[in-house]
Amino acid sequence: MAEVTEASLEFRRRMLNDPPQKDQRRLAQAFSLIRGDALMRLLVEYPRIGRVLLGELGVNRPNAESHCREDGSAFILVFTGLLDFLEAVTRTAMTGANVTVTGQETVPAVQVPQAVDTALAALYRQWDALWKGEVLATTPQALPAEAEEIAGWLCVTTTLFVILHEYAHAVLHADIQPEERTPAQELEADAWAARQALLGFGIPKNRVRSVLTGAVIMIRALAALQILGHKLPGSHPPPRERLAGILQVVRGMCEDEFAYFHVTTIVTAHDQRMEAAERSLQGLPYLPEVSAERIISTAIAMLIEVHAGRLTLGRAASELRVMFDAAGPEVLRETGAIAARILPWDAPEGPSREPEKASIIENFAAILEGLPPAIRAQIRGEA
């Protein structure tokens, strides 16, 4: 017989009042990504997790809650509305992705980037209308089978990050009411969730990029809701700060700086895409803020494609030139400092260099040579 606790009584009452409206397995499917030895490690290190009740609440609002009671019991509720919303956001974001399957032709994106931004902004507004009792009229773009498979994975990893973020509050902030949580505690929960997702699933299953992309989709989607006026419990920091905290966890788990940028290319691309949609909601200029890390990440992502023969060097140079032109002198100098460490244009060639990395370094140097002298000098620290 299950133990009766303060949390279990309230959990059962709320679940009976608002049972899940759709598939009741979504939370279980996501949490089951962490299994076997990884799950045992988590439960041994944080035994409280095994006693926290988890359920999907059939309420059409974009919420997730963790509640701890004085007797030490706790429960987590993820609302159906949040899961449905994140799924819609994920699939819309995937309409802008070119999908590469080993041994096959690249499957082109359904929409160009700016069309994706417009679609995301429209989606945010439609769901905001739904939560206010209006009719939702959404016409989601169909995805190719290859993109649909990736979207399905990202829906699961996004849900996993939601669950682990709430578990983090349950194990780290048990004495703090949700509305009293500080920005520092939200960042702590993000970092804990990212680390557990990476250790429990991302690294063992070689799905690090999927885990990180799931995290950024959740963070950016909730940021869009805040722009629309939705009130989240506690005090959530800006998305750029939240992502920086997660990426700091990743840095500490990578063998070197090149490996860090190599593994974060996709999450950086999704972050920029979703930030552009947020800017559209606010009536701001389209182009997201250009930073040194974004330039380096975008360069590596494109040069991986160049090395694989899926993108021409000229196209990569043209798209990167847009970012170089938008960057100020300080960003260009910082870009050069990072590149000098991980993509050294004067590095000697040798048989020990990995083919892909050697190709990225050589092609980055070629792109630099094609830049206007003033920009090239700033990047190389000569101006």
Rank of each mutant, 00 (worst) to 15 (best):
T80L: 07
P62K: 04
F85D: 06
R69S: 14
C68L: 03
R69Q: 15
L82Q: 06
D71N: 05
R61T: 06
A64I: 04
R69D: 14
G72N: 08
D84P: 00
N63I: 05
L77T: 05
V78Y: 09
N60K: 00
E87G: 10
S73E: 11
G55L: 06
L53Y: 13
I49C: 11
F85R: 01
N63T: 03
S73T: 07
G81E: 10
I49W: 13
L82T: 01
L54W: 09
L83Q: 02
A74P: 02
S66A: 12
N63W: 08
R69F: 14
T80M: 05
P47C: 08
E87I: 00
V59M: 15
T80Q: 09
V59W: 07
S66Q: 06
L82S: 07
G81W: 14
A74N: 07
L86Y: 14
D84Y: 13
F75D: 09
V59S: 10
L54V: 01
I49V: 09
H67L: 11
R61P: 00
A74H: 04
L77W: 10
A64T: 07
R48Q: 05
L57Q: 13
E56S: 13
G58V: 03
L57Y: 15
G58C: 10
V78P: 13
E65L: 12
R69Y: 15
C68Q: 01
H67Y: 06
V52A: 15
